[in-house]
Structure formats: C-alpha cells, structure tokens
Amino acid sequence: MNISFEESWLHKVNPALKLITLTFLFVFVVMIHHLNDMITFTFTVSILFFFCTGHSYKRILLFLIPFLLVFFSTAVSMILFGKGETTLFKLGIVNVTEESLFRGLHLGFRALVFAMMGMTFVLTTKPVLLFYSLMQQLKLQPKYAYSFMAAIRLMPIMFEELQTILDAQKVRGVHSQKGIRSLLKDIKSLPIPLLSQSIRRAFRIAVAMEAKRFNSTNERTYYYHLGFSIFDLLFIGYFILMISLGYLFATEFPLFPVTDVRY
C-alpha cells in the first residue's frame, strides 16, 4: 500500500515527546467533566486532525466515518439508560433524561477526541522513528524496541499468509458444511495455521537477531538520531494556549446550560 502525504510540522515533533504529551492529554480529558470544556477541547484537537497531518482532506474525511460511528454508539447507551431526574422521553426500559442526554453527548465527544488524538499521532509518526525515539529518549531496552520493529515488518507477511490460507481452504472446500459444530471448526481453522507459522518465523528471526547481538545491553550506536527541536515547543505550546483559550471561551459563552455531567 502506497500512501502519499506531505510532511507537516507534526512529523517533526519528537515521537516519544508526542506520545507522552498525548498520554497526559488523555488523563486531562478524563478529568474534564463539563460539556462545554469538552466541546472546546474537541475543537482544539480537530484543528490538528483536519489541517496539520499533511494528509489529503479526502482521506481525513474517510477516517472520520468510523469515528462518527464510535461517537454515536458511545453516546447512545448512556443517553438511553443513564441516571437522571428531568425525564425527556420514556418508553418501556428506555428513559432519556436531560442529565443522561448531556452525559451521553459528553462521552461521545470524549470518544471522538481519543480517536482523533490517536489518529493524529498515527498519521504523523513513523513507527520505526517512534521506537528509535523510545530507545534514545526513554531508554527502552533495544531488545524490546527491535522486536517491535521486526514484528511490525512481519505484518504484511501475515496478511499475505492469511490470504493464502483462505484461498487454500476455498480450493479444498473446507467451509462447505453447515451447522454450529462446523462453524466452530471454521473459527479455529484460521488462527491455528496463522499463529503456528508466525511463531516459527518469529523464532527463526529471533535466533538470527540474537546471533547478531541485538539483545546486547552494552552501549550501542543508532542509525537514526532523534533529538528535540523548536517543533516540540510549538506542539506543547499549542495545547497550552488552546486549552486556556477554550476554557475562557467555555466559561464566557457556554453552549449548553450544564456544569457537571456526572450524576
């Protein structure tokens, strides 16, 4: 698969720093309990997601489709079954209240923000550079980092193998029978060959890597060097500025007349 995109400033942010910042923001979002603050923060993240990843708008919009489904599906069970006092709508076990409606929306926005933050990270970070950065900045042991990189390289082979197994099963008419028992057999007939082949291949690669001293804990040299730059400051500064602005905006011009969405 060949995906073309332009390198944006987000690509130049140090990957480990980006990951840590986003993790902090995750915790921060979990501590937001006011719907208005949540909406302004969603706005903050969506600017990065829509305009700063360097990918085409068409692709970004395509990524957005499942996110909206997540928004909807996360919101709906809280809206329908959440606790609350001001009933808006009642039908059998469904009890929509004003409180549960706002809480559901809040959760929906929260899920949307997590999805957009994650996607922004994935779209602007090369996995190899991420693991190099984790080794250099966060002192992750090389044997873990290189194992991760090797495993990621194996993913396309796994997909290819999956296709081969599916084709082979089709040719041999494996899925021709019906009934629960054969369905269970079908479910198992895929992961077993896939896993056993993967384990064999991983073992061979690991032996080769050990022979080449990839598990050495001594001081080692790196092909890529990752450091910090002005873009790291820009990244952190963006969030600090936008969160403060968002907070001010939400207090001055609240969109919804709710304060805390918790019951």
Binding site: S147, A151, L154, I199
Partner: peptide
Amino acid sequence: ILVTIVISIG
C-alpha cells in the same frame, strides 16, 4: 520477546 510480540501483533 519477539515471539510474544509477533503473536500479539497478530
């Protein structure tokens, strides 16, 4: 580690 990670990536 590698076998674990490969299984897990699967």
